[in-house]
Amino acid sequence: MFKLEARHANLWYGEKQALKDISIGIEPNTVTAFIGPSGCGKSTLLRCFNRMNDLIENTKIKGEFLMDDTDIYDMDVYELRKRVGMVFQKPNPFPKSIFDNVAYGLRIIGEKNRNAIKDKVELSLKNAALWDEVNGILNKPALSLSGGQQQRLCIARTLAIEPTVVLMDEPASSLDPISTSKIEDLIYKLKQKFTIVIVTHNMQQAARVSNKTAFFYLGELIEFDNTEKMFTDPQNQRTQNYVTGRFG
């Protein structure tokens, strides 16, 4: 059984077709990497799974998207987004305190108990490997943190509402190598509890963190297999060219 599944997904931004008949299944408690050159549709597909594309005007979507074998369009969209969390390319903490950033989602879902919020904030920050760096300065503005810390804060904010899936859209692309390796360690750890789908431009990153890799090109899913196989013995010539750095 798949955690997330797309069946014959097609998507248009206005006249431009961004996804072409994509079918893919994501297994639970794995890390799946979406790779491919810019504009290949990998971020677009990612954003289909929590219906973020709904926010963009003139978007037309066809096909089926399933979570735990339920059509996500039969679910309440807000409920869906609580279960399918998302981390964005650029760290986007709110201009609030560190604490309030993590507590935001909890307050959104109506959690009133102060101690419960406090405990969950601490747990989420620990899960996001940020607790040791911010313990004691939780009331400081989130924007005073470094870029890498801000991104882990955003991950903590996502984890706080206890999703089962975490979508990551190039989460380390704006970070330095040390922050990047911290995020990668984190992804490796989070795999125990969550199903993770990560979009990345960084081939080594895909190879390091993921169990399965999907290669996209011009809106089509070219190849999808175990990461090791994708990088050592790809079946498609274009995949081979891309993973060996010959184009893209």
């Binding site: 926010l55 807000y78 986007n92 709110f94 959104i108 904010r157 996502t158």
Partner: peptide, 27 residues
């Protein structure tokens, strides 16, 4: 107000009103 903040709010399941009143308006 940057769209990234709206996305952050919608991303944790906030409604339009919650996003507008808690993120967009204060900003």
């Amino acid at each position: 107000v940057p769209d990234s903040l709206r996305e952050a709010s919608y991303g944790v399941g906030a409604t339009k009103w919650q996003t507008t009143s808690k993120v967009v308006f204060p900003f």
